[in-house]
Amino acid sequence: MAVADNGRGTDTRFDEHGRPVKKPVMATKDLRFFDDPAAQTLPDGHPRRGMSVVAALSDWLVHTNRRVNGSWTQRYERGVPVTGLEPVPDDGTTGTTVHFRPIADLAPLTVDVGRFADAWPGLTIATAFTS
């Protein structure tokens, strides 16, 4: 599956040596929103949970981030990063794309694309699996 948007991209900061450092939201429970009854809801009315849930429930996940100040990609397997932040050539766009393959023994996934289209008009969803 793949989910993509044309937003500003995931926030990326740089350490004192100029290396990109991404928030650990992909590999850790997002404690800002998890089980917080006062957490801000998304446009579809559901609470934010963080990408860590998708990463943990996937055989693999590739997160590609495009921002004005640089683009990168990173691969996760079962929620654990297996690569560092790898630079991606600038193509003049911004946004985030997440390709992933859910763990095979999970219940079948159904996606109501129409529900998301109204809430996020810039979002695209693809359901083809690739490794």
Rank of each mutant, 00 (worst) to 15 (best):
T12E: 09
A128Y: 07
F34R: 05
E77R: 07
G18F: 07
L61Q: 14
F33D: 03
A107K: 02
D59Q: 15
T124L: 09
G122D: 15
L57K: 15
E16C: 07
P87Q: 06
T124M: 05
A128V: 13
D118E: 05
R66L: 15
D105M: 01
Q74E: 14
V3T: 09
G92E: 05
P37N: 00
G7S: 10
L109D: 03
S131D: 08
V68Y: 11
A39W: 00
A55T: 15
R8S: 11
T94P: 06
L106A: 04
H17T: 12
V111C: 04
D36H: 00
V80H: 05
V82S: 00
A56K: 13
R66Y: 15
K23P: 08
T64L: 15
G9F: 10
G50K: 10
D44N: 07
L31E: 09
D35T: 02
A119Q: 00
V62K: 14
P108L: 01
P108M: 01
A117Q: 03
R49Q: 05
V62D: 15
P89D: 01
Q74I: 14
V82W: 01
T64C: 13
A117H: 01
R67W: 12
S131H: 07
T110G: 13
D44V: 05
Q40H: 05
E16F: 07
R101Y: 04
N6T: 11
T93C: 10
G18H: 13
D44K: 02
G45V: 10
I103M: 05
G95C: 15
W60E: 02
H99I: 04
E16V: 09
D44P: 02
F14S: 09
R78C: 11
W60A: 01
T97S: 09
M1S: 08
R75Y: 04
L57S: 15
T93E: 10
R48G: 09
V80I: 05
R8G: 11
V62R: 15
K22F: 03
K29D: 12
A38Y: 01
L85V: 12
V68A: 12
G7H: 11
Y76F: 07
P121T: 11
D30A: 13
S58H: 11
E16D: 12
G92K: 08
P43T: 00
P81I: 10
L42P: 08
T124A: 09
S71M: 03
